[in-house]
Design a protein around this nucleic acid. Sequence first.
DNA 1: TTTCTTGCAAAACATTTGCAAATCG
DNA 2: CGATTTGCAAATGTTTTGCAAGAAA
Lengths: 124, 124
Amino acid sequence: MKSLTRHRKMILENMQYRTDHPTAKMVFDSIKMNTYKISFATVYNTLEYLVNCGMIKKLDINSQSARYDANLSEHSHLICKSCGNMMDYIEPIPIDTSIPNLNGFIVEDISVTFRGLCQDCVHN
Amino acid sequence: MKSLTRHRKMILENMQYRTDHPTAKMVFDSIKMNTYKISFATVYNTLEYLVNCGMIKKLDINSQSARYDANLSEHSHLICKSCGNMMDYIEPIPIDTSIPNLNGFIVEDISVTFRGLCQDCVHN
DNA sequence: TTTCTTGCAAAACATTTGCAAATCG
DNA sequence: CGATTTGCAAATGTTTTGCAAGAAA
């Protein structure tokens, strides 16, 4: 939790540059492609580190490998059941955070995911 | 997609009996405990089969292993960041499914997950 | 019999960890 | 220098697959 080293900065910037909710492997590949020497484990561990720092989010979706998102503004996701594509949905979802009967649970974060068929997959 | 065999029935009933959103391993262990002979791969594959049939759901949460839920009625989940406990939240969440700007995306399923601190973890 | 399902073990894939070397402050 | 971070490889955990044997239709 101490310093933003060169590697951490690079991974964070890579995340902030992209909007494809990448897996650790995708981040690793894209950094490797820039002829930058880095280890896979470092990418994994750094992504978790950045999640713990609150600089990126780990998405609440079931996926064989974890997916991360550097977009911290409130938004939700559309996932196509057919092609697997994942799109941002930035319109605010009207959820009242003062919903009842939480039995003392303190909500820090709400995630909303829509699953269905994207326009392309509906038309075929 | 054809028949509800003895194994499938047993796994489905095990799922319907419990409310702990188990992993495949948890289902396997609990069936094994009843001295019933079954293979781990069969449990894995059967759970996916039941998901595809629409008889159970695979939850949209990030977790090291997939979690399943036989409760098909509309509800959402509270997950404690501290103890990891996962609770059902059955009050309906007022999301208008006619939300705008979906660009032709057909929504079939909405999942809502609250992360935060449960009552027990707040008090210590 | 013909088709579908299961068990098993191995393969494939995802994640975590220990430790020595490198880097940071 | 002392503390933290990284690379590497190995350990661990999860999911998928191929195929022979078994069960169902």
